[in-house]
Amino acid sequence: MSSTEQGTSSAAPAEPTTAPESAAAPEVPESFYYVHGKDKVVHKVSAGALQHSALIHGMISNLGYTEEQAKANPFPFENIDGDILQMVVDWCNQHKGKPTPPEDTNLPKQKEKLFDLVLAVNYLEIKELLTYCCKQVAMMVKGKSPEEIREIWMIPTDAEDEAAEKEAKKRAGKEAAGETAAAAGDAK
C-alpha cells in the first residue's frame, strides 16, 4: 500500500515539470535497429541501448537508416549464439542511458555460458559489461589453491606445456622439411 502511495505521490509532481520541457523541445523519435545471431532470430534494439557497444555504435553512427531500411538490413552476428545475443541485448536495454552500477549480479552462473558471453561482449566491445564478466571470471578462483585454479581454469602443467612445445617444434620441423623437399622437386 505504502509503496504505491509513494509511487503516485512522487509521480504526480513530476508531470508539470516535464510538460513545459517537452513543449519547448519536441522529442526526437527514437530510432531502432535490428540485430540477429547464429539462430537468425531478429532483436529490435534502440539506438540508445546500442550505444553501449562501441562496435555497433561505430557502425550505425553515420548510417542514417530509416525504420524500413533498418528492418530490412538487420546486423548479422553469426559468431554469437542467439541466447547470448538476447542476454547482451537485454543488458543494453536495462542500462540504456543509466550510469552503470559498480557490480552486476545478473550475469549467468554457468561457466559455459559465461565463456560465450565474454567472447560476445569482447567482440561487440561493451566495455562495462566486459568488466563485469571479467570480474565474475576472476571471482571463480577466490580462495582456491593453485591446484584448484589449475583444474577450474584448465591450465596445463609445466610438463604438459613442455610436451606441447616439443610436439609443436617437431611439427614445425617436419613442415619445413616437407617444404624444402617440395621446393627441390619443383626445381628439378
Binding site: F115, C134, V141, M154
Partner: peptide, 22 residues
Amino acid sequence: VEKFPILKLPDLVREMVIRLMD
C-alpha cells in the same frame, strides 16, 4: 568442478581478468 577454459580467451581479455584478481 565446472571448468572455464581461460586460455581460450583472447589475450587482452585474459589480462583484464588477471588484473581484476586479488
